[in-house]
Design a binder for these strands. Structure first.
Length: 465
RNA sequence: GGCGGCAUAGCCAAGUGGUAAGGCAGAGGUCUGCAAAACCUUUAUCCCCCAGUUCGAAUCUGGGUGCCGCCUCCA
């Protein structure tokens, strides 16, 4: 079975056929770096990480681009709040984002452009839109003329009339712009800035780019007019991706992306986890309590287009399940051992795994295949178990699960308690005049580089040599 | 107000016409000095409600109820 992907644009599962042979051009909207990332962001990055890993596993050559939005009102506001320059804020949170992604075993993108590196390209983009009659200048701003793009609304599947009537009750932010915009649905390509505000010179005066513009521009400059996969969270469908389509397609007269993929949210008490609602858990926080693999397993248990309810109980359940995967993976032998036995079983697991992933990346089913492999490993002879475990690890890696066994990695605090216990046992031996045992303990610890110092009238002390 | 989505066991979650995957938790058992791990058995006569289509529906249609998302920054 070949790979099928659900396309938001057509609202159907479609056969995946890249534009150029086995080469896949893929772009997802990266973070706006003004704050720590939370579990919802983690889900998006993990989902698309698995998608690109699976594409590579399937033999595609992937060019994965993920941008960093390092210029935005939120960054500017944060900078004012922290009394820092916007660049400092952007850099700081770019680093924390990278740290989080690294911790979660999310592969870095092949290319990671920043908005500020593309200001001139964005200005060119806007100039072309104006020249083509798709944008207009008003009070130093430039707006996209939505009426000029007849397919507007095709991603969200809502007509311009629907959007306008929908907007009627959402006039709050539109009210102030009534004078400058031709239509409430028109959106800013370029926003004017005061002399002291962050900005760049442009043909329309000092200003800065609108948010939607950067993705269109970077895709054009880095990947080309049409790409294979464009992805992001489902809240980006409208207006962000709709606007990207409007900008790019009215200029290029060719589809911006062939397949549009959107992941669903992480919810807390049946509500979207988001910064504005204040109900978020940062990646940093969650990582203190749960391992990266646990978080990934928790997220991949649910299909990427269904919402996930965040609960500690569910995370703990994932932790228990993960532990079984890790224990079974310990049986893994080397590739050379894994040639003689169970080839029929290996082929079955492989086809089950691939069938699941080919069906719009059904990681829930793919994980159930992994558990089936665990059962087989635990009930087979060592030779068979070892080769199934070898493949188990292989598929786990496609899902970005490391299955790293940390069960023996104790921290120094625990080690100190273990030392207390050892010394207590030695003391008991001494009290029983069992000097053979007490000397054995001291000598063996010595060999490990741990020195024992008996203290008169107190517990023995120890130190690393 | 406009548009869209979801509703499956104690919890999480697959399944879109052929008679309910998987994980966690629970119960009983094997093993064990006792545990742990592992293994075996077991846990939804039924998929929010009502009506309809069909030989057959959790899956399709209509109605209802509840919840969520987007329309404003948002993964």
């Amino acid at each position: 079975m070949s790979l099928k992907i659900y396309n938001t644009l057509t609202a159907k599962k479609e056969d995946f056929v890249p534009l150029e042979g086995k080469h896949v051009k893929m772009y997802t909207c990266g973070p706006t770096v003004y704050d720590l990332s939370h579990l919802g962001h983690a889900r998006k990055e993990i989902v698309f990480d698995v998608i690109q890993r699976y594409l590579r596993y399937s033999g595609y050559e992937v060019t994965f681009v993920r941008n960093i939005t390092d210029i935005d009102d939120k960054i500017i506001n944060k900078a004012i709040e922290l009394k820092k320059r916007p660049e400092q804020v952007a850099r700081e949170f770019t680093y924390t984002f990278w740290k989080d992604m690294h911790a979660l075993n999310v592969m870095p993108p092949d290319i990671e452009p920043r908005a500020t590196e593309f200001i001139h390209a964005m200005i060119d983009f806007v100039a072309e839109l104006i020249a083509e009659g798709h944008a207009y200048v008003s009070h130093g701003d430039v707006y996209f003329d939505v009426a000029s793009f007849k397919e507007y609304g095709k991603l969200k599947k809502q007509s311009l009339d629907d959007l306008l009537s929908g907007a009627r009750d959402q006039v709050r932010s539109q009210q102030e712009l009534k004078e400058v915009k031709k239509s409430p649905v028109d959106f800013a390509l370029w926003k004017s800035a005061g002399d002291n505000d962050l900005g760049w010179e442009s043909p329309w005066g000092r200003g800065r780019p609108g948010w939607h513009l950067e993705c269109s521009t970077m895709i054009k400059n880095v990947l080309g007019d049409t790409i294979d996969i464009h992805g992001g969270g489902e809240d980006l469908v409208f207006p962000h991706h709709e606007n990207e389509i409007a900008q790019s397609e009215s200029l290029h007269h060719t589809p911006l992306a062939k397949y549009w993929l959107h992941n669903s949210f992480v919810q807390v008490e049946a509500e979207k986890m988001s910064k504005s609602l204040g109900n978020f858990r940062t990646i940093e926080e969650v990582l203190k309590q749960f391992s990266p693999d646990t978080i990934r397993l928790f997220i991949l248990q649910t299909h990427y287009r269904s919402p996930i309810e965040f609960t500690e109980e569910a995370l703990k359940a994932a932790q228990s399940g993960l532990s079984r995967l890790i224990k079974a993976a310990r049986q893994a032998g080397s590739k050379s051992e894994a040639t003689m036995h169970a080839s029929a079983e290996l082929a079955k697991f492989r086809s089950d795994f691939e069938e699941a992933m080919n069906n719009d990346f059904n990681t829930s089913i793919a994980l159930s295949v992994l558990y089936a492999m665990v059962d087989k490993i635990n009930t087979s002879d060592p030779a068979t178990a070892s080769q199934i475990a070898f493949d188990l690890k292989k598929y786990a890696h496609v899902l970005g699960l490391t299955l790293k066994d940390n069960s023996k990695a104790i921290n120094s605090k625990t080690a100190a308690s273990v030392m207390d216990l050892v010394l207590e046992l030695r003391e008991k031996a001494r009290e029983n005049k069992d000097y053979a045992s007490s000397d054995l303990i001291r000598d063996r610890l010595n060999n490990l580089g741990i020195k024992i110092m008996d203290v008169k009238g107190a517990n023995a002390d120890w130190e690393k040599a």
